[in-house]
Design a protein around this nucleic acid. Structure first.
Lengths: 214, 214
DNA sequence: TAGTTATTGTTATATATTTCACAATATTTT
DNA sequence: AAAATATTGTGAAATATATAACAATAACTA
């Protein structure tokens, strides 16, 4: 394990998640054994990197025999879901919020959206499996479902204020889709996802004909 | 400039985009001068890093006087839009595709979605500024609008095949929202965005109480 | 069962990225 | 106009990340 002062993981964590996705697909395909280079090719990562990452997370294979898909997946579950499936909420039931509420891939990953919120009361009439509440019930729902992670998908002007409320009510991790860099206390984990930036970086690289990491 | 073998930029490019977003906001607020630490605080980046990044992109400030907001923005436009605004397309007019089609922030960034595509002909009845075509017209539109960058927002099983078509028709950069790692020739730029992974990495860090880079 | 082989796990090396430190300098002050 | 000051720009050091190299070894072969 590196002496990374901030955190014992980063890029490697992202890749572990990547590997898991790939392994779930391989599992669905009925594959039951794989090698570092198999997974590497599948995920676009070098075989050495795969082994290095596994080593960091204390994932052991079998010399000459590779790794077992099922076993690896359950080891990864163990790494990620010590505490069972996670209840999360989405604030903002606009386009992005609704996309997320309808996103079918979360179930497989044990990501459980328990509620969404919107200031606009008319949004509550949305027909969906996942309820839409007004902001008044934010604290209540966070408490009831022990929500520790939330997604911010409100328009830019409202984002910081929503974020502040979430932090106040005890949320420790935020994924933010509003095009602002949200300010949070040091102990709160924040993942700012800026769709324009994601697209623009590709546009730029295309115009320069230079590769971009995924 | 670093001797990065792959590409003369990466993290720094992302941050330049980040800075630009911040500066656009400062500009709207009427601010006209800033310092490396101002922008650093705004974006959550160290002041040294800001200066280092500027230096890499040959952006000059004024010793003791800092930088001019307007001037910097136009310098950045110059870096990113040598070739004017970019025409892009979105394949898949489901939830995510529609979110993107309605996303208002692209205009400001000169990202111009000229068309969206979907196999389902009923999707063409969607009322929106941006037209919805069936896949048959993909090549025609790519050619007509000189599209070099595309967004893939189709369900997982269709993603690779859509990607292959795009590459065949000359698209050089792809932003992929399907939860698969798309395989593309080396010269094609790909940015795989996996929403589950983005969320899970935060969930994991929260459960470990360790910080995560944005 | 001994020899061969393919693959892991890890140590060493190379590269990329960030932080630190400070000289250079434009602006402000007296 | 000289001195003081705040800020940039960058080279050097520290850290993080990726690649390469190979010894250890489980599985296979004869």
């Amino acid at each position: 394990m590196k002496k990374n002062t901030k955190c014992p993981l980063r890029k490697s964590l992202r890749r572990i998640l990547l590997y898991r996705g790939s392994l779930l697909r391989l599992q669905a395909l009925g594959v039951n054994r794989f090698y570092s280079y198999t997974l590497g090719k599948e995920t676009g990562v070098s075989a050495e990197q795969v082994r290095k990452d596994f080593s960091e997370y204390r994932i052991k294979g079998n010399q000459r025999g590779g790794y077992h898909v099922d076993q690896l997946i359950s080891e990864m579950e163990h790494i990620f879901y010590k505490k069972g499936s996670q209840n999360i909420i989405v604030v903002g039931r606009g386009n992005i919020g609704s996309s997320l509420a309808n996103y079918s891939n979360f179930i497989q990953r044990q990501i459980n959206i328990v509620a969404t919120f919107d200031i606009d009361p008319s949004k509550q009439r949305i027909r969906s499996e996942i309820p839409v509440y007004t902001m008044e019930r934010l604290k209540e729902i966070i408490d009831r479902f022990a929500v520790r992670t939330a997604i911010v998908a409100v328009p830019e002007p409202a984002a910081q204020s929503v974020c502040d409320q979430l932090v106040e009510y005890g949320v420790g991790g935020i994924i933010n889709f509003a095009p602002v860099i949200l300010k949070v206390p040091d102990e709160v984990i924040i993942n700012n996802i800026n769709l324009s930036d994601e697209i623009e970086s590709v546009i730029y690289c295309v115009s320069q004909a230079c590769p971009e990491e995924s």
